[in-house]
Design a protein around this nucleic acid. Structure first.
Lengths: 201, 201, 201, 201
DNA sequence: AATGAATGAGCCTTCATTCAT
DNA sequence: AATGAATGAAGGCTCATTCAT
C-alpha cells in the first residue's frame, strides 16, 4: 500500500524546515542535508520533492511572502477608513507574526538571494510592489498623488529598515515595538499636507 | 635586499577586489580564487596577506565602513547648525559615494554576514551605534530626549530601508535620490514638537 | 528499498587499503585519495564512511592491533604451562602473521603517530600494557615479582626492537626467525633465578 | 662587508632547529618555515643552505647519528676488557645523552623516514651495521661466533625496543634506567656459554 | 648573504545531485 | 515513496620551492 497524499505533507515539512534552518544559520549557507534532517527525511527524498536546492529556497520564500500577504489581508478586513487600513498594513509588516527570529532572518536572506536568483528577485519584487500599491491606494484617498507616492516610499523604507536593525539583535539599540514609529511618521506626513486623516464621523 | 613594500599595495588590491566581487556576485559566495584573480595574484598569495577568507571579508567590511565614516566627517566639516549637520549625515549615507552598485551590495551582504561572524557583528554595530549617536547628538539640541531618540531611530531605519530597496534594482520603484525623503521626515518630526529648526525665520 | 549493507564491506575495504597504502608508502603520508582509489571508490565516499582521515587511520590501527590480539589468543589456547604460554605470546608477536611487510610498516608508523594523535597513543598503550600484563601474569608464576617485572620489560623490548630492525629490510642483518632469540633470553633469565621452568625434568 | 663564515653557523643552527622541531612535533610533519623560524632566519635562506627539505632532514639525521657515534667512542676510550667495552656501547646507546626527549623522537622518526628516503635508509643502516659490528667484535673475544652473532642481535634489538617504549611516554610502564636490563641480558647470555666474561686479574 | 614576495601543486573536506533498489 | 550509496566538482588552506632585489 503506497502512502498516499504524502506529497503536500512532505513539501510543507521541507519548506518549514528550510525557514527554520535559515533562521538558525542566519544565512543561506544551509545544506540540503540539514534541512532534510530537520524535516525528518533523507536528502534524496528532499530532491525527489524539489528539483533543486534553489527551488526549495524559492518555495520557502513564497511561503514567507504568502504568510505576510495573508497577514495583511487579515488585518485589512475589519479596517474601514484609509488610515485604519494603512495602519493595518504597517501592523501586518511589523506585528509579532513577522517578528519571530527565523522569519526576520529569512527576509534578510531573501534580499541577498534576490541579487542572484532571478526567481528570488521576481518574488521579492512582487511583494515590494504589492506593498507599495497597497499603501498608495489608501494614501491616494487622503492626499495628492505626488505626496502619496513619497509617503508610500517612506513608509516602506522605514519598515524594511526596522527589519534590518532587528536582525542585528543589538540590545543597545532596541527596535522592537517600532510600529508606532512608522505610524507617527505617517500621521505627520499626512497632516503636513492638510490631509483629512480621520473622517468626521 | 628583498623586493619590499608590496604589502599595503597587495592588501588594498585584495580588499578592493573583494568588494568588487561581492558586488558582482551579490553575495558572500565568492571564492578566494575569484578574488585573488581579480586582484591579479595567486590564491596562495591572498592567503599570505590575509590569514583566512573571513579575515579578508572583515578587512573589506572595515574598508567600506571606514569609507562611510570618512564621508560623514567630510560632509560634517562645513555644517554648522544642527540641522545642517543632520542633513550632512543623511547625505553621507545616501550620497553618490555610497550608491555605487558594489558598495550597496557589500552593505547588504555585511548585514547577512553579521548574523554569523562575531567580527562582522561587532563592526556593523560600531557603525550602527555611531550613526545613532551622531544623529542623537544633533537632535538633542533641537528637541527633548524622548523625541530625539525616536527620530534618530526613524531616520536610521529609513536610510537603511532605502538602501535595501536600492539593492533590488527595481526600476519601477526607483529609490534613487531619496535623500530628500529622509530630510522631509526629519523636518516634519521636528516641526511637530515645536523644535526651533531654523534659527532665524 | 535502498541499496543496502555496503557499510561493513566498504569500511573493511578502506581499512585494508589504508594499511596497504601505509605499507607501500612506509609512512602516514598517504592521501585519502590514494586510499580511496586502492579501495575502489571515490574520495567522497571514503569520507562518507569515515568522518576524517585520522578516524580512518585509527580504524586501521585498531584493526592491526585487533589482529595481533586475536593471534595471541589463538596461540594461547592450547598452551598450558606458563612457559608454553609465554612462548605463545612471543610467537604471536613475531609469527609470520605479523611479518607481512605492510603490517610491519603499519606498526612502525603507528608508533610515530602515537606521538601526536591522542587516539593513537591510547590505542597503542592499550596494546603495550596488555602485552606487558600478559607476560607478567605468566612470569609471576615462575619467579619473584621484581624479576618478573624486569623480564617482562626485557621481552617486550626485544620483540619491538626486532620489529624495528625488520622494518629496515637490511638483508645483511637478517632478523627474520628471531623468535628463538627472545625465547632463549626468556629461558636464560628464568634459569638464573632458579625458576622452575619445566615442570617435569 | 659581506658576513664571512656564516655558512657553518647557519647550517648548524638549521640542523639543530630541525631536530628540536621534530622532537616538538613528534613527527616529520614539520614545515621548513617552522624550522627556519626556530633557527632565526627566513625560509628562503634555509633553502639557500640546504637544497631541499629532505637534504636538511638527512643532515639532521647525520648529526644525531654522529653524536651517537662520538658518544660511543668517548665511552669506549677508557674501557679495556671486552665486557667493559660492551657496556660502554650499551651505555652510549641508553645513556642520558641519548635520552633527551627530542633525540628519542628524532630516532623514531628516522626509522620511519628510512622506509622512504634512500638516503635515510643508507644512513640508518650504517649506524645499525656499525653498532652490530662493534658488538660483534667484542663478543667474538668472549664466545664462539654463532653465539656472538645471536647475542649481538639480541642486545641491539633490546636497545632499540627500549627506545621505542620510551618514545611512548607511558608513565605506567617506565623504561627509564633500563640500561641495566641490557647488561643483565648480556651477562646471562655469555655466562650460559661458559664465556670467560671477567678475565682474572 | 639575506629576505619579502610569489606560485603551483596538492590535500582534506563538503555538498548538491543522482542512482539503484 | 523512500533511502543508502555514490560521485564530480569545488573550495579553503598549506607548503616546498623559486624569484627579484
Amino acid at each position: 500500500m503506497p502512502k498516499v497524499g504524502q506529497e503536500p505533507i512532505r513539501r510543507a515539512a521541507l519548506v518549514s524546515a528550510t525557514i527554520s534552518e535559515i533562521g538558525r544559520a542566519g544565512s543561506l549557507d544551509v545544506t540540503v542535508g540539514q534541512i532534510a534532517k530537520t524535516a525528518g527525511m533523507s536528502t534524496a527524498l528532499a530532491h525527489y520533492y524539489f528539483d533543486s536546492k534553489s527551488a526549495l529556497f524559492l518555495a520557502a520564500m513564497r511561503h514567507v511572502l504568502g504568510g505576510f500577504g495573508a497577514s495583511v489581508r487579515r488585518n485589512l478586513k475589519p479596517a474601514i477608513t484609509p488610515r485604519d487600513r494603512l495602519c493595518a498594513i504597517i501592523d501586518a509588516s511589523l506585528g509579532p507574526d513577522q517578528f519571530e527570529e527565523h522569519v526576520v532572518s529569512a527576509w534578510l536572506v531573501f534580499y541577498v538571494e534576490a541579487q542572484r536568483s532571478q526567481g528570488a528577485t521576481r518574488l521579492l519584487r512582487i511583494y515590494t510592489r504589492r506593498l507599495h500599491s497597497n499603501l498608495l491606494h489608501e494614501l491616494n484617498q487622503l492626499t495628492n498623488a505626488p505626496t502619496a507616492n513619497r509617503v508610500a516610499r517612506g513608509v516602506a523604507a522605514m519598515i524594511d529598515g526596522i527589519y534590518l536593525r532587528i536582525a542585528l539583535h543589538d540590545e543597545q539599540l532596541d527596535f522592537r515595538g517600532s510600529d508606532s514609529l512608522v505610524r507617527d511618521y505617517l500621521d505627520l506626513a499626512l497632516a503636513s499636507t492638510g490631509a483629512q486623516i480621520r473622517e468626521i464621523n
